[in-house]
Design a protein around this nucleic acid. Structure first.
Lengths: 189, 189
DNA sequence: ATCACATGTGCGCTATAACGCACAAGAGGA
DNA sequence: TCCTCTTGTGCGTTATAGCGCACATGTGAT
């Protein structure tokens, strides 16, 4: 890929918002002239200014960077069950999808049952949403108490654990694999 | 947030690869001195050079951009609520994280209430997991019935809709943004 | 000890990103 | 028409990204 493949979508974003260069300049702190040049491809902005723009629009930085985008299709629901190494049994709610880099499990813990998990690979983030009962999550050495309807997002590349309350617990467990697994592609890890 | 929140992960990536500045300079076409300055935070690179670096490592650009990540954050004892353009009100369970490109909402529908959503931007995938009641999802022109404990994953860049059953419905709604998102978050939709 | 080589950092120079300001073109209004 | 406001673009200046080169340090090897 040539460096020309960087398509900045500022023009699209601004068009969608219906704002003028002046307005955008005002809300981002980036000069009107510079914004124009960026849109026209006459200037290659610093990430610092790109950040300012993204912040102004309240957009993730990646929203402004056009790269090779993978498209994705729908996947229906099929519940397969899988036993984790840690010996607990989980149901697959959403299977892993390479495009999303995510998968979702449904976990059931018996009353007071606990499960400790070793550190996952770097860049793995977990999200837990409690469906029923109460659940304590061990993260960073401390137990975080959660009730039904509450959620917690944490980095899973550290040792962590789950512990159900007196009435057991059911929760959704989303695993997000950041693009850090690309480190694997380099050779190390 | 100050622009200082941009943490470039070049140092981490290079450390993981075990390569020297010279080697990286050679394979990326970016001067050794500049690479050093970027790692030390003394220089804010252009996206052009950032692209060269990413390309040299055969990494996606986003792999080098540190989200300024909250990552570990979000214990939503306090739910923030947000009203969708479509007029229904949703609670934010997990806020958008650039690294994950995902956010999760908690949606409550009154009995028989329905909500239609226009097509989102290309590359948006939704996951729905029903917590309570029954829910029908309009996808691809057909209504898919779901009960509590069931989930559905579908491409959201087509018109789609939700319809609660007789007792109403509560469900989690995960939005995954492929690298093309942009427009959806702005408000245009 | 001295050599040979590779590591990362500092210096001077050039290219250019980013700014403020001014200007030309268009859109209504009176 | 003339006036006023806003649109986006061009110009001159300053700040800084990015380069090549040289230097200081470090690590073995002989």
């Amino acid at each position: 890929m040539a460096p020309d493949d960087i398509t900045l979508k500022l023009r699209d974003v601004r068009a969608a918002s219906g704002l003028s260069l002046s307005k955008v300049a005002e809300m981002t702190g980036v000069s009107k002239a510079m914004l124009g040049q960026i849109e026209r491809g006459e200037s290659s902005p610093t990430i610092a200014t790109l950040w300012k723009i993204a912040k102004g629009f309240e957009l993730p930085l990646s929203a402004l960077i056009g790269s090779g985008a993978l498209r994705d299709a729908a996947t229906p629901d099929v519940f397969r069950t899988v036993t984790f190494p840690g010996s607990i049994e989980v149901k697959i709610v959403f299977p892993f999808d390479p495009a999303l880099r995510a998968e979702t499990f449904h976990v059931d813990l018996a009353p007071s049952q606990s499960h400790e998990s070793a550190a996952h690979a770097a860049g793995v983030t977990e999200e837990v949403f409690v469906l029923n009962g109460t659940l304590d999550i061990l993260r960073d050495g401390a137990w975080v108490p959660l009730q039904a309807g509450q959620g917690l997002r944490f980095a899973a590349d550290l040792p962590h654990g789950y512990r159900a309350g007196d009435q057991g617990a059911a929760f959704l467990n989303m695993h997000h694999y950041a693009q850090t697994d690309t480190l694997a592609a380099i050779g190390k890890v």
